[in-house]
């Protein structure tokens, strides 16, 4: 299987690197301090393929804290707010779109 780092990286707009945290599986984002955050607002934003490749390489190197890092699109609003760029990422960010049998 081709490693994510060997795949051709093509981004069409602002993007982040996201993964799941190893010990509990929650959604996390690579931040600007070479660490991970569960706040999308604190995620490092990349805008070119080279930046994305570099951020992904740095993220993939941390195999202990995070699982399966990949590049995901985001929308950066005029006021700087960051929102997920597609439905899958919106659900990962906001949680299930249904009422849970037991409210969280």
């Amino acid at each position: 299987m081709t490693s994510p780092l060997q795949q051709k990286i093509k981004i069409t707009g602002p993007s982040v690197v996201t993964a799941n945290r190893t010990w509990d599986g929650i959604v996390i984002y690579r931040d600007t301090q070479q660490g991970w955050t569960d706040e999308l607002a604190d995620a490092a934003i990349v805008r070119t393929a080279d930046e994305a490749r570099a951020l992904l390489a740095e993220s993939t190197a941390d195999d202990v804290d995070a699982i399966g890092p990949y590049i995901a699109p985001v929308i950066v609003r005029d006021d700087g707010a960051i929102e997920p760029g597609n439905l899958r990422e919106r659900i990962r960010r906001q949680g299930v779109t249904i009422d849970l049998p037991i409210p969280a």
């Binding site: 799941n20 509990d24 599986g25 929650i26 959604v27 659900i91 990962r92 299930v96």
Partner: peptide
Amino acid sequence: GVYLQLHAY
């Protein structure tokens, strides 16, 4: 039997 889903294991 342990998978990783969108938000959790």
